[in-house]
Design a protein around this nucleic acid. Structure first.
Length: 892
DNA sequence: TAAGTCACG
DNA sequence: ACGTACGTGACTTAC
């Protein structure tokens, strides 16, 4: 079979230009350690990767312009005259673009007296004759004149990753001209950037019309008499010479005496070592990570040879006996097809004992006593990747995992909360371990995702994962030790994973009937409001589209524009609230939004994820995601069920206990973040206020409004003071505070100054934590959870400020997260010890929610606050408030 | 897939 | 002078 020859020709200057300006806004973010700008190199690289993937070329050449003067200047002295000088930020990058190409193993070429276009034209023509399929990449539309049946011209769009592909058909569709006529058009129209004039007053439209009629410039002048008398005709006659000259300038030469031939442009792929060195020089950290695993010739092949494994089946599984005494530990990996481990098909497993590896597709085999023992025997340490996921998966097989020792995912997250990939392969790369592929590389992605049918390929991938776990245990545990984070791992996160798994497996019961009733009620109201809005607007439109709504409000109804977004008018609540009273439509829109949100997210959304068999939702808590240490909840998110507005709060009526006669019980920490702040800042005044059990917001109000008695605090003052307290926790700015409570920036600034005068310890803490973050590069929580803040030394004000606010906020938010995690572990232990039927079901950052038989409620009322209180001992007391009722709504 | 919006702590 | 609150997830439209 004859191999397909595919030629890729790139207009180097033009693409570099496009790349540079596409990333111009981020110019200062692309600077390497030597102060070199790298945005054009970066963009060029991105373009290369994209085009390689879509074209898969066998031959590549990148053409550059050799200098400013070419043969065209001899024909027309002003050709490309008056051009602005190339910015130095770009010109300094050209040598590095060439270096990039060397690392990619790609030929590049330039020729005195000619432009890159001419080199490309010549090679494209040769390609044509030698039966190549050719793609030309450029930012310059002029090159579309080279399009043929076998040559496609890909013109970069706004960015550099997207291209518009010009085939002769596409040229025709776009201009109504053939590719060859593009030259005639340029001759008539001229080119501003190349600085040649064309025929006076003839633009693209006129040119196209003329060329449709007369085919070419020659045709026009041969038949010039046919044209009616007009200004245009006069210009044509007047500028005849210019037209021919311009056509000549526009015509790309296809017969240039090149020193390269197509055989010189064979492309054999990039050179790994050079690429690594180059990316290091450019500080392209992410690309480095990507290539470190992926660029071996055939990594899968290589690794298969490395690991010898036994494929387990029903027939041979009983031949293997793992004597518990002899087995020191097992590294184990359970594969599932999909994110949701409550339902995802269990599609395989692999494990390692001693020097031996085993793998199988048949997860039922795990139930055989000899395998089950490995996971359930308390004397065998189990090392895993994502213990919670594995625990839930095994639980579905009736296998109860005990004693997790090392959880690669969890430890990795603790070491750096910002590196939170869920992919074992990706994560391994971040720890410089590359003997394993990413799932995407083996399973594919999107609709094409699938487990390999080839046993060797699949099992070696699974075994590689197991080996990764095994290999990374010691070095990562060592790092934990260095960071003094062992306690955080062993006492908090590791046991918490099991507590969370149990909560998720339990799930919370949903009254679907109640939801459906509410749904039909809301449905009616929605359609009523919709009708009213259409009437007020005078037309129907898509209310869910901020874009269409913006047109109605700000163009049709001419309401004042309060705020703009990147893409148009903002129609966010804060904006609509300012427009209230100007038109009745506003109130209706707000109401519509409110109810539509409840309907789609909380009624329809919740019903969608309720399991039919137990009428429950089983959320998943992501334990390794947030950079502060909080949990998050997905599928469904049970941490954002409405409460603030009465309409939405009703949703909570649909969360009920699993048995009749049971109750929902809830306890929450009161102002835990401010208490944490009082503790870590050692601020005497704030500590005193908490120690005395004062209303902290009222106390703050008294101080910033300079009142003598708590009785003088109005509710508005308290509200504002509360906002100040929140602002402090977030890393305050006068603008943000002003925005939030609707006062002037000046006033906000005054508030903050007063605040810091009253709580000097807080001020000092804020200053110190930023300095410490700058020195150490990270901040820590009470339990040594760590967040790195590389941006804290950024020269960009915005980026730096953000990092500074993060430095102030993370120890507070993160320590509060630590505390409730400890409480959860102790709480679960307590429920078991006391043999209560009560179940802990949900965590909402500062709140724990249980279900329990009514008779256990008095016990919970005593025990839960006790346990939560005792989770940690601070300089000041914690405060816990509890409530219960027959639904979550009633537990308030 | 990104952006806008809005639900929660 | 800069241009902002901290941490999340889900749904919808529009590219």
């Amino acid at each position: 079979m004859k191999e397909n020859k595919k030629l890729l020709l790139i207009d180097g200057n033009s693409v570099a230009f496009r790349a540079f300006f596409a990333l111009h806004q981020s110019l200062e973010r692309f600077v390497n350690h030597n102060g070199l700008h790298t945005n054009a190199v970066y963009g060029f690289k991105t373009m290369l990767d994209n085009i390689i993937e879509s074209v898969n070329p066998t031959h590549v050449l990148v053409a550059f312009d050799a200098g400013r003067k070419t043969f065209r200047n001899e024909k027309y002295a002003d050709y490309k005259g008056g051009r602005a000088k190339t910015p130095t930020e770009l010109s300094e990058q050209f040598p590095y673009v060439k270096k990039l190409l060397e690392a990619y193993g790609m030929k590049y070429y330039e020729l005195q007296n000619y432009e890159a276009d001419d080199i490309i034209g010549t090679l494209a023509k040769q390609g044509e004759e030698q039966d190549f399929e050719t793609t030309i990449v450029t930012g310059d539309r002029d090159l579309t004149q080279l399009a043929t049946e076998k040559t496609t011209v890909a013109v970069t769009q706004k960015g550099v990753t997207e291209v518009e592909r010009y085939t002769p058909k596409h040229v025709e569709a776009k201009y109504g001209l053939s590719p060859a006529q593009i030259i005639d058009m340029k001759g008539l129209v001229g080119d501003n950037s190349d600085n040649y004039p064309g025929v006076a007053k003839v633009g693209e439209k006129t040119a196209i019309k003329l060329l449709k009629q007369f085919k070419s410039i020659e045709g026009i002048y041969e038949n010039i008499d046919e044209l009616k008398k007009s200004k245009m005709k006069e210009h044509l006659i007047e500028d005849k010479e210019i037209a021919f000259m311009c056509k000549d300038l526009a015509r790309i030469r296809c017969d240039v005496p090149l020193e390269v031939e197509l055989t010189d442009t064979v492309w054999n792929g990039s050179e790994h070592q050079k690429l690594v060195e180059f990316f290091q020089e450019m500080d392209f950290k992410r690309f480095l990570e990507k290539i470190s695993a992926a660029t071996q010739d055939d990594p899968a092949q290589k690794i298969i040879e490395d690991i010898k494994f036994t494929a387990l089946t029903k027939d041979n599984v009983n031949q293997f006996n793992f004597d518990a005494e002899a087995v020191e530990g097992v590294s184990f990996y359970l594969e599932m097809m999909g994110d949701n481990y409550h339902t995802a098909p269990l599609v395989g497993f692999a494990f390692n004992v001693g020097t031996k590896y085993f793998a199988s597709r048949d997860t039922e085999l795990l139930k055989y006593p000899n395998l089950r023992k490995l996971l359930e025997n308390e004397n065998i340490d189990v090392d895993l990747f994502d213990g919670k996921r594995t625990f839930v998966g095994l639980n579905r097989l009736g296998i109860h995992l005990t004693d997790i020792r090392f959880d690669l995912l969890l430890v990795s997250y603790l070491l750096d909360t910002s590196d939170n990939s869920n992919d074992l392969g990706k994560l391994a790369q971040q720890h410089d371990y590359t003997e394993v592929l990413e799932d995407e590389q083996v399973y594919g992605k999107g609709a094409k995702i699938k487990i390999p049918e080839n046993d060797a390929e699949y099992y070696s991938h699974l075994c590689n994962k197991v080996r990764t776990i095994k290999k990374l245990r010691t070095p990562l545990m060592k790092k934990l030790e260095t960071n003094k984070q062992e306690e955080l791992y062993i006492k908090i996160e590791r046991p918490l994973a099991i507590v969370l798994a149990e909560m998720e497996i339990d799930g919370i019961t949903v009254d679907t009937q109640r939801l459906e009733e509410m749904g039909s009620e809301f449905k009616e109201r929605i359609s009523e409001i919709k009708q009213t809005i259409y009437q007020e607007a005078g037309e129907k439109f898509n209310l869910n589209s901020p874009k269409q709504l913006g047109v109605i409000l700000f163009e049709k109804m001419k309401l004042p524009v309060i705020k703009k977004t990147k893409t148009g008018y903002s129609t966010a609540v804060s904006v609509l609230e300012k427009l209230r009273g100007m038109a009745p439509i506003i109130d209706n829109i707000l109401k519509y939004r409110q109810i539509a949100k409840i309907q789609s997210t909380y009624i329809e959304g919740l019903l969608k994820v309720t399991f039919e068999k137990d009428s429950k939702v089983h959320t998943r808590y992501t334990q390794t995601l947030t950079s502060t240490g909080r949990l998050s909840s997905v599928d469904p998110n049970l941490q954002n069920i409405p409460i603030r507005l009465a309409e939405g709060k009703k949703i909570r009526q649909a969360f009920i206990p699993q048995k009749t006669g049971w109750q929902i019980f809830s306890s929450d920490y009161s102002q835990i973040e401010l208490r944490v702040l009082a503790h870590i800042s050692h601020d005497a005044n704030m500590q005193k206020a908490f120690a005395e059990g004062q209303d902290i917001h009222a106390n703050t109000a008294m101080n910033i409004f300079e009142l003598d008695s708590p009785a003088d605090v109005t509710s508005n003052m308290r509200r504002q003071a509360k906002a100040v307290n929140f602002g402090i926790v977030y890393g305050i700015s006068d603008y943000g505070l002003a925005q939030n409570i609707g006062i002037t920036r000046k006033q906000a600034k005054l508030f903050i100054e007063k605040y810091f005068k009253i709580f000097p310890g807080v001020k000092e803490y804020m200053e110190k934590i930023v300095i410490s973050a700058r020195e150490k590069g990270y901040v820590e929580t009470l339990f040594k959870r760590r967040r790195y803040l590389p941006d804290i030394s950024s020269r960009n004000y915005n980026i730096r400020s953000f990092a500074e606010r993060t430095a102030m906020n993370t120890p507070i938010q993160g320590s509060a997260a630590d505390i409730i995690k400890v409480a959860m572990i102790n709480m679960q232990k307590m429920l078991k010890e006391k043999k209560l039927e009560a179940r802990m079901l949900l965590q909402v950052h500062d709140e724990l929610i249980f279900e329990a038989p009514s008779k256990e409620i008095p016990i919970l009322e005593e025990v839960v606050p006790q346990v939560m209180d005792a989770a940690v001992s601070l300089d000041i007391p914690l405060k816990v408030e509890s409530s219960y009722g027959k639904t979550w709504f009633d537990a308030k």
